[in-house]
């Protein structure tokens, strides 16, 4: 069935709300407005205001309330409008949700799902264009997911809700209108990376909103006779390094594509893992394509120049291969 990423997210939430009375959705404008990205359109009428809970602009308060509700036996889906606003809730996510199980000696698990949009590309300037997935992926105690396909948008929520610990899901804002085919089986895991395109010459490692750009780059490279493999991380914490190492062992070269800034990025972590554990599989130095080290600018040409783009990925691969 053909559907949009947005519709896939909506169906996943609809299924969860229908299947389990403990599940409820809470966040800014999830109810009357229908969701900032229209992912919960019609839910308020169908499930009522107790389970489709509009919140005030209190990210710290309602994310913390989500943690408490999870402790109290519910299965909250907390929607934070954007990763930019999630900084206001960072204390509750890092100091409480991620740490509670450990600092209580294993007594209190926090089965919380936090969903948020992320990423740049719509001329929203410096305060609405962050890609901070790497920050969250730094924190022990939470799992971090980045659905980049229709299937993952549809499939990742159920295992995230079934997980007894906090899961943060990043939905790249540029993906909501993406369309694709969804198969009959909507189940998926939240543990493994996925090879999205097989190839032999180089491994392109990416996630989230950079996947379509990376696949476009791989197409262009194929036209030039360069056969690139594309690995989608899917799960940013914990990293499925086995899949990465297997691909690198095959292609002997890797380029990481990450919309985060280069310094201290998730790309840096992926490269370090490969360098630590698969160094002798490599025939060439590792490379990466990240965002430029600048707050994301408003002007369209400047924003485009700041972000990873297919031509930059193609250029990086050609440089690596000397072709």
């Amino acid at each position: 069935m053909r559907m949009s990423y947005r519709e896939a997210i909506r169906q996943a939430m609809h299924e969860a709300l229908t299947a389990d009375p403990r599940v409820f959705l809470m966040g800014e404008d999830v109810g009357k407005y229908g969701g900032t990205y229209a992912c919960s359109k019609g839910f308020l009428e169908e499930f009522g205001p107790e389970r489709i809970r509009d919140t005030p602009l209190s990210e710290l308060g309602f994310v913390g309330a989500g943690i408490g509700a999870a402790l109290g036996g519910l299965r909250p889906i907390v929607e934070v409008m954007t990763v930019n606003f999630s900084l206001l809730a960072l204390d509750q996510i890092v100091n409480t949700a991620a740490a509670l199980r450990h600092m209580s000696g294993g007594q209190f698990s926090v089965p919380l799902v936090v969903r948020m949009s992320t990423g740049a590309g719509r001329q929203l300037a410096a305060q609405h264009s962050h890609s901070l997935e790497g920050w969250y992926a730094h924190i022990p105690g939470i799992k971090v997911l980045a659905p980049a396909t229709i299937a993952d948008a549809r499939g990742m929520l159920a295992p995230a809700l079934a997980d007894p610990d906090p899961v943060v899901i990043f939905e790249h804002a540029q993906l909501y209108n993406l369309e694709g085919e969804l198969g009959e089986n909507v189940q998926c895991d939240i543990a493994s990376a996925a090879v999205r395109r097989e190839g032999a010459a180089v491994t392109l490692i990416t996630y989230g909103g950079s996947l379509p750009k990376t696949l476009a780059a791989a197409d262009e490279l194929a036209g030039a006779g360069i056969d690139a493999e594309v690995v989608d991380l899917r799960v940013l914490r914990p990293l499925d390094t086995a899949t990465l190492f297997a691909s690198v062992k095959k292609t002997r070269r890797a380029v990481v594509v990450d919309e985060g800034w280069k310094s201290g990025s998730l790309a840096a972590e992926v490269m370090a893992r490969i360098a630590e554990e698969a160094f002798f599989e490599l025939d060439a130095p590792l490379k990466r394509v990240c965002s430029e080290e600048v707050p994301i600018p408003y002007a369209r040409h400047m924003e485009e120049a700041a972000l990873p783009q297919a031509p930059k990925i193609v250029a990086a691969v050609r440089e690596l291969l000397g072709k």
């Binding site: 913390g64 309330a65 943690i67 408490g68 999870a70 402790l71 109290g72």
Partner: peptide, 8 residues
């Protein structure tokens, strides 16, 4: 906020 969630 945790207390609010427990009460919710």
């Amino acid at each position: 906020p945790l207390a609010v969630g427990l009460a919710l």
